[in-house]
């Protein structure tokens, strides 16, 4: 049963991530008084890109390796997260540190591809991506730490659900606030879509990618966004818990959808910040997250 859950995880992430992306696009369009593309458009986009020829514009192994590496790392994340409040066969063998490690591996793959493409704009995008990773990933790690401290285990179940499993504490509230702001940076939406900023650095790290390679990166981005949105719904919204696997699956996906709606609304009502402005906000988030960890360790 817990082996089946691994496959359910992978399938749900692969298939639903583009749908959530479509929902975000639709909501953004409505805010902008536009009709917007159909919600299934991201599937079409992926299919179209996957059907194109590969263009190996940088001609080196790192450039070719980066998209599958990023995609593989996010697949691994999808396979092991406790979706539906159930720690599955894979999840039981790893802990929160593995999760952080795998998510970071995806980001590092993007950096690898960007730097290997030897494009000025990719280089600027990579340097911005690096700053964002260094400054924002700690918030993720600390979210899991708060769960681990409150759940008294580094296991995935405790780290993800621990923050609110036994009701809200002060540390949960503080962490929730920090995570909510960082979420916009995790999913690279305005005001924190700085590394990709189309108008400045032309999609930054991804500028040299096209066709199937780019499809893998896009899919990777969508799944990554889904992981972070799900983590919010699973970690901070305890009322979504029903007790049954299928029930939790449904409520968590619904919660994820709502988180995506919020992301789209914030994204469409904010301009992009500059990296120097964003860094100041990220630094504040780390400080707040540290306070939350401290409170959790103190049992609050």
């Amino acid at each position: 049963m817990s082996v089946v859950a691994v496959f359910v995880n992978v399938l749900l992430f692969l298939l639903l991530a583009p749908l959530f992306e479509g929902v975000m696009r639709k909501i953004t369009a409505r805010v902008q008084s536009r009709q917007g593309p159909p919600v299934v458009q991201p599937y079409f986009d992926l299919l179209k890109l996957l059907g194109k020829d590969r263009v190996d514009s940088a001609r080196n192994w790192a450039f070719r390796l980066a998209p599958p590496a990023a995609f593989a790392s996010i697949l691994a994340v999808a396979a092991l997260v406790p979706l539906g409040s159930k720690v599955n066969a894979l999840g039981a063998r790893v802990d929160a540190i593995t999760l952080v490690y795998l998510l970071t591996l995806g980001g590092v793959s993007v950096l690898l591809g960007a730097l290997a493409s030897r494009n000025t704009f990719a280089a600027i995008g990579a340097s911005r991506e690096m700053v964002t990773m260094v400054m924002v990933e700690p918030v993720l790690a600390m979210t899991l730490l708060v769960g681990a401290a409150r759940g008294h285990s580094l296991g995935l179940g405790a780290a993800v659900f621990g923050a609110s499993a036994a009701g809200y504490g002060l540390s949960t509230a503080v962490m929730l606030a920090a995570y909510a702001v960082a979420l916009q940076a995790f999913v690279a939406k305005q005001p924190f879509d700085i590394p990709e900023a189309e108008i400045e650095v032309l999609e930054g790290p991804f500028i040299e990618y096209s066709g199937p390679d780019y499809a893998l990166f896009r899919w990777y981005m969508m799944m990554k966004q889904m992981v972070y949105a799900w983590l919010f719904a699973a970690g901070f919204l305890p009322f979504l818990r029903t007790g049954s696997y299928v029930g939790d699956l449904l409520t968590q996906l619904l919660g994820t959808l709502l988180v995506f709606v919020a992301i789209a609304l914030v994204g469409s009502t904010n301009p992009r910040l500059r990296i120097d402005q964003a860094v100041k906000i990220y630094a504040g988030l780390i400080a707040v997250a540290l306070v939350a960890v401290g409170l959790a360790v103190a049992g609050l």
């Binding site: 953004t28 902008q32 008084s33 005001p191 900023a197 469409s268 992009r272």
Partner: peptide, 16 residues
């Protein structure tokens, strides 16, 4: 100007 600072909602509304 909205588009250039990454604020496409201003872009779309002004053009509407």
């Amino acid at each position: 100007a909205g588009h250039l600072i990454g604020f496409d909602t201003v872009f779309m509304q002004a053009w509407r």
